[in-house]
Structure formats: C-alpha cells, structure tokens
Design a binder for these strands. Sequence first.
DNA 1: ACCTGAACACCGTTCAAGT
DNA 2: ACCTGAACACCGTTCAAGT
Lengths: 252, 252
Amino acid sequence: MAVTANNGESRQPLSRDRILNAAVLLADRQGVEVLSMRRLGRELGVRAMSLYKHVANKDDVLDGIVDIVVSQIDLPPYGTEWRKAMGDRARSARQVFLQHPWIAALFESRLTRPQQTPVRLRYVNTLLGLLRQNGFSVSNAYRALLMIDSYLYGFTLQEVNWRLEDGNASRSEEETVHQVPMETYQYLFEIYTHLSSQNAGISTRLNTEFALGLELIFDALERLRENGTKFDSPDAPTPLPDSDGEDCKLQD
Amino acid sequence: MAVTANNGESRQPLSRDRILNAAVLLADRQGVEVLSMRRLGRELGVRAMSLYKHVANKDDVLDGIVDIVVSQIDLPPYGTEWRKAMGDRARSARQVFLQHPWIAALFESRLTRPQQTPVRLRYVNTLLGLLRQNGFSVSNAYRALLMIDSYLYGFTLQEVNWRLEDGNASRSEEETVHQVPMETYQYLFEIYTHLSSQNAGISTRLNTEFALGLELIFDALERLRENGTKFDSPDAPTPLPDSDGEDCKLQD
DNA sequence: ACCTGAACACCGTTCAAGT
DNA sequence: ACCTGAACACCGTTCAAGT
C-alpha cells in the first residue's frame, strides 16, 4: 500500500554495496534459500529489474556476499608466529561462518574457487606469506594451508548443520538418543549416551573439539616444517631468497 | 512428439528406485542445478506430478540420491586395523565424491545431518565401532571420526571445485599463473610457479596431498589413542566392557 | 489405481517502454 | 539517467478431474 516499501531509508539511491548488504541481512535473517532477486528488490523498495543496473546477475550477488563474509575474517599481520597466526585466523573464520551459517551452502563452488576476487586472493596470499615467513617451504606452505582449510571447512560444515538442525528446537543429545534404535546402532548409542552425560552444552563441546583438532594438525605441520622439503618431489627444493623477512605489513 | 518419451525402457511402472536412479544419472550428466521435478519427470517419460506418488517432494529426492552415493562408499569389515580401515574408507569416499561431484552441493544440510537415514546411521555406526574395537575411548572415537570427516569433507569440497572449474577447459596452473597479478600476490605467484614446474598433473598431486594429510592426521590420532582419555572431561572415562571383540561382522 | 491439466505462487532475466 | 511492465521460460506443489 505504501509507495516506498518497508524500511525508512529505502530512498537512498541504490548501489552495489546497498544491494549486497541487504542480501547479507536477508540471508542472515531468513537463509539463502529465500534470497531471490525479486525478494531482494522488495526488501529495497524496488522492483527486481532495477537491481540489474548495479549487479550483473544473481551469481554476482552470491559472489559479492561471500566476499563480504570473507572480509570479516581477521587476517593476522605479517610477522605473527605461524601457530598463533593460523590459529587466530581459523578461530576467526569459524566465528564468522557461525554468524552467517548460510555461507556453508556457498562453500561449494564459491568460497574455494580457484579463479577469485581480489578479497579472496589477498586473503590466501597473506596466509601463504605467513607460513613462508615462518620457515615453511613452498610446497609445505601450500600443503599446510590445504590441510588447515580442509579441516576448517569440513568442521564448520558439519557444525553449522548440527546447529541449524537442533538450533531452534534445542533438541539435544538427550532426546536424540531415544530416537536411535540402540540395538541396531550400538556405537552411536554409546556416543550419544556419553555426550549427553557431560555437563557441557553442544557449543562448548564443539569449541573444545575444534581447538583440539586444530592443535593436533598444528603439531603435525610443525614436524613437516622442521623436516623441510622431505616430502617434496625431486624437482622441488628452491627455497625462496627470503625476499621479505618481516618488513612487509599488509594491514594495521 | 512421441507419446512415451526418450529412452526405450520408460514403460517400466515408475518406482522410488527408478526415480532416484534417474536423478543420480541426471545429476552426473548435467549437475544438480538442472535437477528439477519437471525435468526428472521428462527424463522418465512422465509428468512431474506423477512423481509425487512415489516420493514425498524434492527434498525427499535429494535425500534419496545422497543415500545412494553414501551406499557406494566401501565400508571396511569389523576387525580391520583402524588405520587401514579409516584410510580405506576415506579413500573410497573421496573416489565416490569425485565420481558424483554434485554431492558437494549437498554436503550442506544433507550428508552431515544429525537426524539420519538408516543408510547413514549404519555407516557412521560402523566407523565408530571400528575405532572402539581398536582401543579408542568413547570420546576419542567421536573425536577421531569428527577430525577425519572434517578433513575428508573439506578436502573433497575444495578438490571438487577445482576440478569442476578447470576441468573441461583443462586450465592448468601454467595459465592461471599469468592471470594473477604477481606483484600484488607474490606468495600466490610463488606457489603457482612452483606447482606448474612439477611434472605431475593436478590429479596426481591432489592424490598425494590427500594421502599425506591423512597420514598426518592418523599419526596425531594414534597418539590420542595411546593417551587414552587424557583429554576428556572428568566424568568421562567409562571404557566399554568390550561387548564384541571381533565376531560381529556387518558385511560380506 | 494410476496418471495428468490446470492452476497457484513463485523463479531469473531481457527488452522495449515509460518518467 | 534511472526505473519498470510485460513477457519468456522456467520452478515446486496441490487438487480436482480424467482414464
């Protein structure tokens, strides 16, 4: 009935940023599945077709909101000791992903694409740099990041699903355990029984699990680092001429 | 124009299995994004509405095809030494995922849901059992599976995207390296240069990387296993009365 | 019993037309 | 210059109607 739609400030002149921020907000509140061009237009007090002046298409919108999320991940400054740097970044990424759980649906084909936006190129370049400056060989830096990211993505993927699932209804292990036919799945039963006997809630437990797994991976990578290029193929060794030890800070 | 559509055997009387198998085939050939009820019906020589006699809705179809994929993963028999068991299963899962790359889009909210189908319950129950029978405490079995699965899902997720991306055009690192502004992203440049200097193709390299990361994780888990319940919360210890040592085989 | 036509409330996107 | 109406080719799903 009103000519200009829902929120008071919809008369700002529409821009890529305004569209993308509205998209993130909409996804946060309702999930990616309701994120359509038409709905997004409605949210901005405009018809869907108007959006196409500022974004190429829906794909562009999805890429854009992934970039917004990625840029919310704290990037450790060059010079940070690698365990702290990789740990801080992994923890920050996990927190950001949990704040925007819909991002899991975009992991596939967006977050981990090889052809990338500047935001994502800078992000992975910095992480590789941090590893290189801490004594990782080229291969091992690649290896380490691949391993940390695999763990980070895989863990968060599972975690987000569990939270979405029993989130609102707060269905806990205590209830789940009774839904599983225990004679058939004795080991699952055993786990659920064990988990529900613990005082810690699911959040606290997953925090602990994530941290522990990360430390185990870091321990493994530390051994890799010390062993240098031991696992590389024969033509690999070329250690960089250590072009920049510490003096190249990307951010504050 | 023909009354019964495309393939010769479309006059079999439509069943859940026939529908799900057609869905997997369609996804394999064209990707999940083209998998619609209407398209699926067309594929079976029938209108979309007919499908609703055999499947509840599209969600049911998607759950169904995930089950089909999961059931293609080889499940090691009880009694297998844990490193071999977990390694075989991870390698088999990876192969299956690479054969059905669209599965990555369903990782979110389907593969890792807590409320599960019998196929998936049996699958994870067996894996937990294998760990328990090899001396893992209840907590550590849970921990180990969470960690292995995180790595498996995360790694495969990234790998599938890379393959889909440069798959058909076979765009290799040699070409990618020239698209990245090397002054801005020196560490990325360094990696791409290094990777493209190796003789091994991307497939071979990722095989190696996957195997190496898996071994590093197994090494870490072996230490966890030996340390028993060291990382558990105080009320945890309860080791199972070893109800079945070896005599409970689930499969051939 | 099994299939379907028509309908409903949606999609993304284009393009000629309006202000 | 910026927005939009109408249109196209799609969605998932329901339900009364056909055979």
